[in-house]
Every structure is written in structure tokens, then in C-alpha cells.
């Protein structure tokens, strides 16, 4: 896009530090390293420091998101429990256990909505 173009096409950055007698001053060299680092970071070639991400920024719709998270975890819990019960013939015990697990996972999902897991690998 436009902002990635050099500021002026008539004076490329590569020639900017060169003085009339062909010498290159040290300050410009440092500047080049700086700019190289910035460019690499911008293009994602270097690992940038992690930012806090994934948080719902606006309050709008957070409630709906939380509700969906709980309901979907419950659906998965109930579904898994029912399937395992059909398979193993233990109705309704695994269903009850996984129903609780679904509820716990729903609360965990809502918790993660506001505190994304980070840090330890």
C-alpha cells in the first residue's frame, strides 16, 4: 500500500546517509539498523513481544458471547455423555458426569474469555 512506499522516489533511502565526499557517517548507520529492525518487525520476520489479545474490547455483545460459550460447552458435555452411555450401556451415569463437566467447561470458557491462557508452554 501507499504507506510502505519510500517517502520520496527521487531520493531512495539507501543514498541518504552518503555525503558529498563519499563518506558514510556513523549516526546514519545506526539509523539504518533501527529502520531495518522496524521493517522486519512490521513484516513479522522477528518475533514481536506478545500483547494481550483475544479480549472482547467493547461491552457490546459480551453477554451474548458468554451465553453461547456456556450453552455450547453444555451441548458438547451432554452429547459426549449420551454417546458414551449408549456405547458402554451405563445410562445415566456418564451422562450425569459429563453434564457436570460441560457446565464446568462452560464456566472455564467464560473465564478464558476475559483471561486468555498465556505464558507457560
Amino acid at each position: 500500500m501507499l504507506d510502505t512506499l519510500p517517502p520520496s522516489p527521487y531520493q531512495p533511502d539507501a543514498f541518504r546517509g552518503i555525503t558529498a565526499w563519499g563518506g558514510q557517517n556513523v549516526a546514519e548507520q545506526d539509523n539504518f539498523d533501527d529502520r531495518l529492525r522496524q521493517a522486519r518487525a512490521r513484516k513479522g520476520l522477528d518475533i514481536a513481544p506478545e500483547k494481550g489479545e483475544g479480549k472482547p474490547v467493547s461491552g457490546n455483545g459480551v453477554g451474548f458471547r458468554a451465553g453461547v460459550e456456556v450453552v455450547s460447552a453444555l451441548i458438547v458435555g451432554i452429547g459426549l455423555g449420551t454417546i458414551l452411555d449408549r456405547w458402554l450401556g451405563t445410562w445415566p451415569w456418564l451422562f450425569l458426569v459429563f453434564f457436570l463437566m460441560g457446565g464446568v467447561a462452560g464456566v472455564l470458557n467464560v473465564f478464558r474469555l476475559f483471561n486468555p491462557r498465556s505464558g507457560a508452554k
Binding site: 458435555g77 463437566m101 464446568v104 478464558r112
Partner: peptide, 8 residues
């Protein structure tokens, strides 16, 4: 719980 959370 983590498995259910992942599947959800």
C-alpha cells in the same frame, strides 16, 4: 473439562 472445552 479441557477436552469438552476444546470440543465446544
Amino acid at each position: 473439562v479441557e477436552v469438552v472445552s476444546y470440543l465446544s
